[in-house]
């Protein structure tokens, strides 16, 4: 089995995670900490960045 078809699901999942985090970022008016910083974190840190945003980035209510 070639490397690409094995890793494709992983890459797709990573991309979906980042895209969903971006959508959530657009919809959030107030974030914990500066808003632009979260954008940088989501875009630059693989996997961990979006997860951090989902857990800590959004302010409750």
């Amino acid at each position: 089995m070639n490397v690409f078809s094995l890793l494709a699901p992983l890459i797709i999942l990573e991309a979906v995670l980042a895209i969903v985090a971006l959508i959530a970022w657009f919809k959030t008016d107030e974030t914990n900490g500066p808003r632009w910083l979260w954008l940088v974190i989501i875009l630059l840190i693989q996997i961990i960045g979006p997860i951090l945003f989902f857990i800590f980035g959004r302010r409750q209510q």
């Binding site: 094995l6 890793l7 699901p9 992983l10 999942l13 990573e14 979906v16 995670l17 969903v20 985090a21 959508i23 959530a24 996997i47 979006p50 997860i51 989902f54 959004r58």
Partner: peptide, 21 residues
């Protein structure tokens, strides 16, 4: 609404397949 149904399953899939791969 807060996308939990999307990101939590994805995180668990990534955690599960990372080490075997």
């Amino acid at each position: 609404r807060n996308f939990s149904w999307i990101w939590v399953p994805i995180v668990f899939i990534i955690l599960a397949i990372m080490d075997p791969i």
